[in-house]
């Protein structure tokens, strides 16, 4: 059972890939900038956050924009994919009702799309780092590992929320608000050291913290991973994936009737 599902998904990999591509292709269809939005969007977001947090909130951190950009890209992949995946079964109702395919493909394709998007955004992040005076270092080699853990974590939440949302549609609305709070419980716009001691445990329990910190470790602080934290993040991610997948599997039997 444990291996039957992944095996079937591998059989349907061309469908997964097709959905990822169609997601990427249709996202900016009809807009003037088209695919360029993949790059323009994070830059504009960065601009807004930098303005607010360095001029209004007065966060003094050297190369604050770099710090922020690293965290934002990682966070956007997680939150964008999780939010979009939550409603994906309902959104794709016609397909769910009319054809058979392993239902996991739908949330996983959303995560795949977000992953592709993250990879594209590296095309701006790297020059951005270099222009800010950073130089490539050996710790960048950990990047694939961090991306892998983030993908596992995001897939877990995506599967969990996507299946629950079919039966309780409020989830997607609740989650939109909660995501905002979640971002501020993750060291994206400020460092962990800025967080008051009594709130720190919440940050430390949050598995996304470990992923985002790891990006910052290799890109911003230019040192190795905090292995203890990273191991915690990995274990939690895998556990969430297993929970998410088993809940999804159980709930997916009635998807075609409920959507």
């Amino acid at each position: 059972m444990l291996f039957a599902r992944p095996k079937e998904i591998i059989e349907y990999r061309s469908m997964l890939w097709g959905l990822i591509l169609s997601e990427l292709r249709t996202r900016y269809r009809g807009s003037v900038l088209g695919f360029l939005w993949t790059f323009v969007n994070p830059l504009l977001t960065l601009l807004v956050y930098t303005l607010v947090f360095s001029t209004v909130m007065r966060i003094h951190l050297t190369h604050y924009a770099v710090f922020l950009f690293i965290g934002l890209l990682g966070w956007n992949m997680f939150s964008g994919a999780t939010l979009s995946a939550t409603s994906v079964i309902v959104r794709q109702a016609p397909m769910v009702k009319k054809i058979y395919f392993p239902r996991e493909i739908l949330p996983l394709s959303v995560v795949g799309g977000a992953l592709m998007n993250y990879l594209f955004s590296l095309v701006i992040l790297i020059p951005f780092l270099l222009l800010s005076g950073y130089e490539p270092n050996v710790y960048w080699l950990y990047l694939p590992l961090i991306i892998l853990i983030e993908t596992i974590l995001t897939s877990g939440f995506a599967l969990l929320f996507a299946s629950v949302n079919v039966y309780m549609r409020d989830l997607e609305h609740v989650l939109q608000i909660f995501m905002m709070l979640w971002m501020y419980l993750t060291p994206v716009v400020y460092t962990l050291s800025m967080v008051p001691q009594r709130f720190l445990p919440i940050f430390m329990l949050n598995p996304v913290t470990d992923v985002i910190s790891s990006y910052q470790d290799i890109f911003y602080y230019e040192h190795s991973l905090d292995w203890k934290g990273f191991l915690y993040g990995t274990v939690v991610s895998v556990v969430i994936l297993l929970i998410g997948w088993s809940v999804f599997h159980r709930l997916s039997r009635r998807f075609a009737e409920e959507v």
């Binding site: 059989e11 349907y12 061309s14 469908m15 097709g18 395919f101």
Partner: peptide
């Protein structure tokens, strides 16, 4: 291509 992939066919 999309529909074929939904039926489990490779590209």
């Amino acid at each position: 291509f999309l529909n074929g992939s939904l039926m489990g066919l490779s590209k």
